[in-house]
Design a protein around this nucleic acid. Structure first.
Lengths: 239, 239
DNA sequence: CCAAAAGTGTTTCAATTACACCCATGA
DNA sequence: TCATGGGTGTAATTGAAACACTTTTGG
């Protein structure tokens, strides 16, 4: 931090800035999060969110994309990334004052991941039972993960975000599975079908069908052009 | 940043962290934001959001509350504050690498404010016409202000947040004015009344009335106990 | 033909809209 | 008693939930 005005230059307290990622996917009918094993101190050997220090000439969003690629080997395109929140408790990191900017990443299809950088290894970890977030996460990462899952669940209600958890072409049943996995509820297939196919700009028909499974082949769809904020979305009873 | 493990200690890039506040209120039937005149370089004399450096032993939320009090003289209790987003473009601040964590504050009643700290003066500035955000704001504060207004508008749709823009006791008409000011639309007074008084936990009757104006005295209400996430909220046609 | 999954039609019910109407006060 | 804003009743419309039923495939 260089001086700016006069001899009385105020020196701001030094800090470091990291990014951490809550990367979620739908995996065998359940929600899963991407966790790494830390290869370095502190918290060496513990589960943690992928992430790391922001570089000198890097924007926060860039840093998030870079860390995702470095520590997990995922290609950034095809992954939806948005900023989640920042965490800055003075003693959240034993190395000193570290403020982290957390990102939420939604990854279609649970692709294979590999470790890299600070991460000894990276894996998709199931979050089946509601509060079954792996205990013993490094730093305040349990809290961040929990916030990320909450944000993702909430946003499915009023945005067309569920489509980013599907591969580029998908069936209505696959899309329904995303909602059911994220919320842990069963949705009526008939009503769900009508709702998503009627919603303007939500889905775009490809004309093709798929026929792998036992029954009638399903239509294949692409993500529609509608971007965020699409209020009349679906949601089970608030019970 | 002290060393942690061995002689190879990685030195993270130094940075500073600030908090900035988008403080909004409803003022004479319109939305207004709190802006300061900067008393120090850089951008001395320009409009800016209130804010400043986070101290060494301070959590981010604490820093936001402290800056709000210091630069504007507002008491923090009675003001709703939530984290908005973080901004970290490498050259967003000419003094060096400064990442800012922005907060959204909703202030009832447009109370008088005064400058203090880095702020030469502080004032409520009307945001009448949609994009009439004062040009020439310091740093990237125009963008941050715009994001804050967007967040506040969106959240009225699906949370009972509008009540925090009213004084502790308020009438249904005053609450309606908040929605109308924030969205720039007219709402049907009759239907609005039913909706908010029926909604479970939204309002709490005090039993008292007010009779200052020309017509029938209105019931006075307090904020109900319902906290965030209350989906069936009100919203004009998506036109 | 049967099982299985996709997709449609129809009834029922609840929420929202539009608007006529009544209530309580000050001048 | 009139103007003014507060508050209620009610019919028409819309959207969601429940579920019977038809369609299209593989064995």
């Amino acid at each position: 931090m260089r001086r700016y005005d006069d001899g009385m230059a105020f020196v701001p307290p030094p800090a470091s800035v990291t990014v951490d990622l809550v990367a979620l996917t739908v995996h065998q009918g359940g929600l899963a999060a991407l966790l790494v094993r830390r290869g370095e101190a502190p918290y060496r050997g513990r589960h943690a969110l992928p992430g790391g220090f922001v570089r000198q000439r890097e924007d926060l969003d860039q840093a998030a994309g870079r860390e995702l690629a470095e520590e997990t080997g995922l290609a950034v395109d095809g992954v939806y990334v948005e900023q989640l929140a920042s965490y800055g408790h003075p003693r959240r990191d034993p190395r000193g004052r570290v403020v982290t900017v957390a990102y939420l990443a939604l990854v279609p299809g649970a692709p294979a991941v590999r470790g890299g950088g600070d991460a000894a290894r990276a894996d998709w970890v199931d979050l089946d039972t509601d509060a079954a977030i792996p205990s013993g996460l490094a730093f305040d990462h349990a809290r961040i993960l929990s916030d990320g899952v909450g944000r993702a669940r909430a946003k499915l209600e009023y945005t067309p975000l569920a489509t980013v958890l599907c591969l580029p072409e998908f069936t209505v049943a696959e899309l329904r599975l995303v909602y059911e996995s994220m919320w842990g509820v069963a949705l009526d297939p008939r009503n769900f079908h009508r709702k998503v196919t009627r919603a303007e700009g939500f889905l775009e028909a490809t004309g093709r069908t798929t026929g792998r499974n036992g029954g009638r082949p399903a239509q294949l769809y692409r993500r529609g052009t509608a971007r965020l904020l699409m209020p009349p979305m679906l949601r089970p009873d608030p019970s």
